[in-house]
């Protein structure tokens, strides 16, 4: 349905523009989360078939496409793991430079 595709496009634009223009590291990580959720919404909305039910075999006879849903499950967990590592790196950066702005990360040698 075109409504979901337009929403995915708007979310991708919001995420990418916010990732480029922000300097706060926490906002950058939130933009990564928004981009990843938009892509997964596109995958699950492509699996929907009109008039079909959820992929549970004892309730429905014709089901939606179950393959993108299995892929999305793995992607959600890996996205959360990436967020955890990124936040740990931000905590370590704060200990060394005492700020979370990307303009203060100018030293090449630790």
């Amino acid at each position: 349905m075109p409504g979901t595709l337009i929403a995915v496009l708007v979310l991708l634009i919001i995420g990418i523009v916010a990732l480029i223009l922000n300097t706060n590291l926490f906002k950058m990580i939130m933009a990564l989360t928004i981009i990843e959720s938009a892509v997964l919404l596109f995958a699950v909305s492509g699996a929907y078939i009109k008039g079909a039910g959820a992929p549970l075999a004892d309730i429905n006879e014709n089901m939606v496409n179950p393959l993108p849903q299995a892929l999305t499950l793995t992607a959600i967990v890996i996205g959360a793991a990436t967020t955890a590592i990124a936040l740990s790196l931000v905590i370590k950066i704060y200990k060394h430079t005492k700020s979370v702005s990307s303009e203060d990360l100018t030293r090449l040698k630790g």
Binding site: G46, I49, N65, P66, L67, A70, L73
Partner: peptide, 27 residues
């Protein structure tokens, strides 16, 4: 918005092959 050949196979033969009712967990 349509079925693959792969997903058609999973939907029709999934319960007979694995015995699981939840097709996503079976995949």
């Amino acid at each position: 918005g349509n079925h693959n050949e792969t997903s058609l196979y999973y939907v029709t033969e999934g319960v007979n092959d694995t015995g699981a009712v939840n097709i996503v967990t079976a995949i």
